[in-house]
């Protein structure tokens, strides 16, 4: 996003999907990476009684300044994984903002006109690199490529640390999915 490159740096993004689609994970990863890059950052989840299947969303704020509200009414960007999420959050997106939507699962028409909508066939692209469950990382890749909020290398480095030794076997498929998402946006542009 052009406007987010202004000094001091500030951006925010809301991401949503079904519980289990890994939206909380990529939100935390994004925030963790930004922290490693010396930014101020907040990550705030929707929290509900259900562990999987229910609606899940989180909001990440990244800034050079002290972060005031971690709760965002009109985010600069949306990452939407499914129809119910799109329905719930499309109207909140800031004018001129970017909507990254999962074209593998979303069948609804995008209604907003004054925004940039980027379709990403996240589930297919993730399956191509050997892990359909990494569709979340495809979406994150698309977001990073489009916004340039953080460098690719920074995300990959942070991912390694974030997964830790216990989950290190997920590292390479996640990186491949992330790269696939980045390529997908490069192709659109």
């Amino acid at each position: 996003m052009k406007e987010s490159i202004k000094k001091p740096f500030y951006t925010d993004v809301l991401m949503a999907g079904f519980g289990g689609q890994g939206l909380m994970f990529i939100g935390k990863l994004l925030a963790f990476t930004a922290m490693k890059e010396k930014k101020n950052v907040t990550w705030i989840p929707s929290y509900g009684p259900e562990m999987r299947g229910g609606k899940a969303n989180c909001t990440v704020v990244i800034s050079d300044e002290e972060i005031a509200s971690p709760v965002i009414t009109s985010p600069h960007a949306l990452i939407m994984m499914n129809n119910p999420s799109l329905e719930a959050f499309e109207s909140m997106l800031k004018s001129g903002g970017v909507l990254i939507w999962n074209a593998s699962l979303i069948t609804k028409q995008i209604k907003r006109k004054n925004i940039t909508a980027i379709p990403v066939r996240a589930n297919e692209l993730a399956a191509q690199v050997g892990g359909e469950k990494a569709a979340n990382m495809v979406m994150l890749g698309a977001y990073i490529a489009y916004t340039g909020v953080l460098a690719k290398e920074a995300v990959v480095k942070a991912l390694k640390e974030f997964l830790g030794a216990k989950k290190s076997h997920f590292f390479s498929v996640n990186v491949r999915a992330f790269e696939k998402g980045m390529e997908c946006v490069a192709n659109i542009r």
């Binding site: 922290m35 950052v41 907040t42 990550w43 705030i44 989840p45």
Partner: peptide, 10 residues
């Protein structure tokens, strides 16, 4: 409040 408990920050 619930957000302070659930929120992550550095």
């Amino acid at each position: 409040d619930g957000y302070l408990g659930q929120m992550m920050e550095p």
